[in-house]
Amino acid sequence: MNLKQHSIEKNILSNKIILLSISITIMLVLPTVSNNYIISLLIEILIFSIFAMSLDILIGYTGLPSLGHSAFFGLGSYIIAFLNSTNAIALNVSQNILITLPIVILATGIMSFVIGIIAIRAKGIYFLMITLAFAQMLYSISIRWSSVTGGSDGITGILRPNLVIGSWMLQFDSRISFYYLVVAIFFITIILLNQIVNSPFGNTLQGIKSNQQRMLSLGYNVNWYKTASFVISGVVAGISGMLLAQFYWFTSPENIYWTMSGQALIMVVLGGNATLIGPIIGATLMRLLPNVTSSITIYWQSYMGLILIAVVLYARNGIVGTISKIISKNHE
């Protein structure tokens, strides 16, 4: 039994590595066979995948249903606008991603810590409401405090980063180079998050999702872990927001608005929560579908709604969860 399980785990691990290397290769080769527009779609899909995966940490792995995740997505986009843009608002700290990225991580980390420490005290629907309230508060600030945030006009002129080490410099200005940057960050994120959810810490989070009271009586400082999960997920969301702002050269309050949180939530639910791969599939569908179909039918949002209802009612675990259920059933 013991050995068997061990070998199963090993098997899964090597499968994962193979899968990962295949997908990395595909991602690297893809631009050479596709046009500029496809690359821009891929960039968006990857960025939103990072965003959705970050929410999956909260919803899928910790059981905290946030509807305010756009707060950190938006925050990341605004911080990079302050750090490095041609806009008059900018402080122009640096264009070097080795400097800006840590600042974005730090700032979104602090913010998510402050919001998290308050929000995680609420449970279920109240957690949903309180995260929503925080996000809407930031949204409202972004519109009203226009001398700093540019108000409803948003901030233009956000620059894409470069990477400078000594006299060696990489520029991520062009779409293709920016694509590779996003691919790199995407894979680093997926490897890190995968590591996290499969670590003891990840087990702790899943234990909290499963039975918070039991975790307490086992001696886990549940609030501490929830806050940590909130911060990790906030930081990753912030990074994705930063990337989107750099890709668009623009950020605006829409990035903080609750519909952005809703979009991520749909990606997670549709693709399958607590899978990491599910949110990626969800993000891909959500970003591709309107592109292919919205012109075919302007009712795509209604269809989306119906699909979601079906998923929630009949396939709780989303696309990935349902498929893996079918596969494991066939194995038996």
Binding site: N35, Y37, S40, L41, E44, Y248, N255, P290
Partner: peptide
């Protein structure tokens, strides 16, 4: 004319603009 719906969202508009111009 190729018409695309922006849904009033900057991120959707971005995607649609790229589609129109590049594709």
């Amino acid at each position: 004319i190729i018409a695309e719906d922006t849904e009033m969202k900057p991120d959707v508009a971005q995607q649609k603009a790229r589609k129109l111009i590049e594709q």
